[in-house]
Amino acid sequence: MPPIAQAFQNARHILIRGVNWLGDAVMSTPAVMRLREACPQASLTLLCHEKLGPLWQGHPAVNQVLTFSSEDSAWKVGLRLARERFDAAVIFPNSPRSALQVWLARVPVRVGMAAPWRNWMLTHPLPPRPGHVTMRKRTPEEIHRLQAADKPPGPPPPPAAHHLYHYLHIVAAVGARAEPLAPTIAVAPEVEQHIQNRLGTLAGPLVGLCPGAEYGPAKRWPREQFIELAKALQTRWQAEIILLGGHHDAPITGAIAKAVGGRLRDWAGQTSLAELAAVLKLCRVVVANDSGPMHLAAGVGTPVVALFGSTSPYLTGPGLPGETRHQVLYRQAPCSPCFLRECPADFRCLKELSAPEVLQAVTKVLGGG
C-alpha cells in the first residue's frame, strides 16, 4: 500500500475541504462516499462555505460539518481547524485559499490538485487525471470565426472528462476506489414533510422549472420558451408548475408566473437550501438549465431534463454520466462549448431548443407513470 494510502488508513480524523458551488458540491458526493468506504474507521469532517452547510447536514458519509463565512480570513479558518487536530486532509477546490486554510491548520498530510501558488502548501500535489479537459473560454473573435466557418463540432470528450471524476481522482490517490457512483443528497424527513404540507393537495403531477443560472445569461434558456413550455404542460398534463431558484432568479420567475397564471407557484427565493432539495425531490420531473438546482434535483433522485447552452454536458451533465433517467438537450453550435457568461453572437445553442422539443422530453418521464 502506498504511504499516502497508509496514512489515510491509519487516520482517525480526516478533513475534507469541500467546494464552494452548489453544482460542484453535488458532483463531489461520489468521492466523499468512496472516501467513507475506504476509511470506515475515521471520522470525516467536511468544511464548506456556510451557504452549503445544509447540503451536507445528515449526509450518510459525513460525521461533522464545519462552515465558514465570506468574511472569515484563511487565518481564522485555519486556527479553528487546528483545534480539531486532523490527521489528514483532502482538498477538493483548486484554489490557493483552500490549501492555505488547511496548511494553517497544520494538518500533517494534505492532498489536492497541483496548481501554481499552492503546491508548497500540499504534502502531496496531484497531477491531472487521465481524460481531463480544460474548460477554456473562447474569445468573441474565435466564436465569430467558428460560426462563419460553420464546420460541424469535433468528437465529444471521453466519459472520464466529466467533472465528477475530478474529485474521484483525488480520493483515489489516498486509496479509495475510483469507480463512479451516482451523486446523492440526503433530504431530512421532517423537511420533506414540511414541504408536502406547504404544497397541499396537488391536482396534477408536480413539475419543477428552474429558469435561472447564476453563472450568466449564456446558460439560460429564453424566458419566452419557459412560458410556452409551462402553458403546454398545464394543457397536456394538467401539471402543477413550480418555479424554483434563488433570490436573483425572482425577476425571471416573476415574469414567467405573470405570463402563465393558472396552477403555478413561484417559490424562487422562498426556500432554504434544505427546502429546495425537498421540493425538488417531490417533483415528478425537473426542467433546468445547467445550474446548481439541476445537479441538486439529480442528487435527490428526480429525473431531470437538462438544457445546455454555453457549457458542455460531457463535463457537467446531471447525475452519473450515462445515466438514462436524465435527458440532456444540447444543440451544439460550431462555437460550442464557449464557457462564456454572455453570448457575443446569436445565442443559437439555446434559441434553437424549442418548447415542443422540451415538452416531448418531459412527456417521456410523465408518460412513464
Score class of each variant (00 low, 15 high):
128 P>H: 15
37 E>D: 15
324 T>G: 02
357 E>Q: 15
84 E>M: 11
259 A>R: 07
28 S>L: 13
29 T>V: 07
234 Q>A: 00
258 K>F: 04
65 V>H: 10
267 W>N: 03
275 E>C: 05
303 P>G: 05
135 M>I: 01
299 G>I: 09
334 P>W: 04
33 M>V: 02
107 V>N: 06
176 A>F: 06
116 P>A: 13
298 A>Y: 09
74 A>M: 08
360 Q>C: 00
114 A>H: 14
141 E>N: 01
75 W>T: 11
162 H>F: 06
115 A>H: 15
342 E>P: 00
20 N>V: 08
302 T>W: 05
210 C>L: 07
347 F>N: 05
200 G>I: 14
366 L>W: 06
343 C>K: 03
132 H>S: 06
362 V>T: 01
303 P>C: 04
364 K>L: 13
31 A>Y: 13
72 D>M: 07
354 S>L: 08
110 R>V: 12
87 D>C: 10
306 A>E: 09
219 K>R: 15
278 A>D: 01
305 V>R: 14
14 I>Y: 07
178 A>H: 10
222 P>L: 12
114 A>Y: 01
335 C>R: 01
221 W>G: 02
232 A>Y: 12
110 R>A: 14
339 F>Q: 00
284 R>D: 02
221 W>V: 04
225 Q>I: 00
166 H>K: 07
204 G>V: 04
322 G>A: 09
286 V>L: 05
132 H>G: 00
80 R>V: 05
353 L>P: 01
46 L>Q: 02
238 Q>L: 01
56 W>I: 07
251 P>F: 11
95 S>G: 04
71 E>N: 09
206 L>A: 06
60 P>R: 09
251 P>D: 08
195 I>N: 00
369 G>D: 10
158 P>N: 04
212 G>Y: 13
263 R>I: 01
37 E>T: 14
187 V>R: 04
288 A>K: 10
239 A>D: 03
211 P>L: 01
27 M>C: 08
116 P>I: 15
301 G>Y: 14
345 A>K: 01
277 A>W: 13
368 G>F: 02
58 G>I: 00
19 V>Y: 02
164 L>C: 04
133 V>C: 11
146 L>F: 08
87 D>R: 05
183 P>Q: 14
161 A>R: 06
268 A>H: 15
184 T>R: 15
208 G>L: 06
111 V>E: 05
232 A>I: 12
128 P>G: 05
220 R>E: 06
52 L>V: 11
39 C>M: 00
34 R>M: 07
2 P>C: 11
255 A>F: 09
185 I>T: 12
197 N>I: 04
223 R>F: 00
79 L>P: 00
359 L>F: 10
245 G>T: 12
235 T>Y: 06
177 R>Q: 14
